[in-house]
Amino acid sequence: MADEDRTRTDSGAEDASAKHRSGAVTSGQTRAALRRVARARQRRRWAVEGVVVLACLAALISYLSFRSEPAPDDDQAGRSGGVTGVVARSPGFPATDGRTGDAGPAEPGLRPRQRPPSPDPTPSTTAPAPPPPSQQSPELSVTRGEMPAEVNLTAVGARDWMHWGQRGGNSTVRKRAGSGEIADEGGAGTRVAWDGNQEHVRWSDGSSQRSVRDSSEGVYTCGAGNGFSLAVAGSGESRTVHLYGGIWMARGRLEARLSTGGPASSAVLEDPYTSQSAQFTIKFTVPKGARLLLTWKVEKVFTPHCGNVGLQAVAVR
C-alpha cells in the first residue's frame, strides 16, 4: 500500500510539472508575438510620417521657387502679348477726366485708358404735383332727384344753410355760426309764404330761430319769368349745394352758372296738373372770390290761376 501511494504521488508531481512547463512555453510565445506586432506597427507609423514630411518639404520648395521668380515688365508684356486682351498703357497719357497718369486697366477693345460711356440718365417718373385749389379748373354740374320726406338742414348744411317762409314771405332763418356763403339776390315777382309743403325740414342750429322740429313752410312766386336769384361763394375747393324747391301747375327751370364765365348747367321740373317737389344737387368749383349763380324761375304756366315755383331751403357742404 505504501509503495502504491508513493507511485501515485510521484505520478501526480510529474503531471503538475509537465503542465507548468507547458504553460510557461505558451506564455513566452504569446509575448514574443506581441512584441513582433508592436515593432511592425511602429515601422508602418514611421513610414507614414516620413511620407508626410517629404510631401510638406516638396510643397515648401515649390512655393519658395514660385515666389522667387521675377515679375514680367508691363511694357514687355504689352509688346509680347503675354496677357490676352490687355492693351499696353503709355505712362502720362491724358485721362478722360483731364488728369494725367494711370487711369486704371483698359477694357478689351478700347483705346488706352478710354473709359466706357456713361449711361443716359433715367428720366424721372415722378408725377407733377396737383395745382393748388385756387388754380383748379372751374367745374359745374346740376342733377335733380326726389326730395326726402324730411330734411335735416343741420346735418346736410355742414358749412351753411338758409330757410325761407318760416314767419312770412320775406322771412329767412340762417345757420348759426355758418360760413355765410349763401346769398339771397332777390328775383322777379312777389314772394308769398306757404305752409302746405308735403316735405318737411328741421334744424337745431338756427340763428333767429334756434330749433325747429317739423317745418312745412316755404315761399313761392307766380307767373312766367318770375322766381328766385341766389348765389353761393366759391373757395377754390369743390362744393356741393342742395336746393329744395317745387312747382305747382308749371314748368320750373333751375339754371346754374359761374361768375367766372363758361357754360351754364340746368335742370327742369314740370307738372301741368298738380304740385311736385325736388332736391337739386349742384356741384361746383371756382376760385376764392368767384361765385355760383342760381336762378330758379317759372318757365311756363299751365293755369291762369298762379302757376308758380316754390323754395324751401338751400344747404351747402
Rank of each mutant, 00 (worst) to 15 (best):
G245W: 02
Y63A: 15
H305P: 02
R99D: 15
P112L: 12
E49L: 00
G81D: 15
S259T: 05
R115Q: 04
E146T: 03
D195P: 04
A250L: 04
R89K: 13
G218K: 00
K297A: 15
G307I: 03
G28C: 07
L60E: 12
A267N: 06
P108I: 01
Q312I: 09
A256D: 01
H200R: 12
P132D: 02
D97R: 14
V173G: 00
P119K: 03
A77D: 12
E185Y: 10
A264V: 04
P130W: 09
Q279K: 12
G104E: 02
P287M: 02
L34Q: 07
V268Y: 04
A13H: 09
G98T: 13
T240P: 10
A103T: 05
Q209Y: 14
A58V: 12
G12I: 14
L57V: 06
T26R: 13
G178V: 08
L243D: 01
G196Y: 12
L60F: 15
A16T: 09
W46F: 12
E107I: 11
S22N: 10
R210C: 09
A158V: 01
W296Q: 02
S141V: 03
S62M: 14
A127L: 15
L269P: 00
R213V: 08
A129S: 14
P72Q: 14
C306I: 07
V201E: 05
Q279A: 13
T240A: 11
A88Q: 09
L64I: 14
A127M: 15
F66I: 07
E4D: 15
G178I: 08
C306Y: 07
P138W: 00
L57P: 04
S17A: 06
R191L: 03
G92W: 05
D120V: 09
T7S: 15
F280A: 03
F66G: 10
C306V: 02
A32T: 02
T303L: 10
R6L: 13
R115T: 12
P116M: 07
G12Q: 15
R39D: 00
A40Q: 11
V52F: 14
V173W: 09
P130Q: 04
A233F: 13
S68M: 08
P133M: 01
S68C: 07
V286K: 01
W194G: 06
W194A: 08
V151H: 03
K288R: 13
G307Y: 04
L254V: 05
A193M: 11
R159A: 06
T221M: 11
S275P: 00
S134G: 14
G236I: 02
L57K: 08
R67N: 09
I282D: 00
L140Q: 01
T260C: 11
A77F: 11
A58I: 13
K19R: 15
T221R: 08
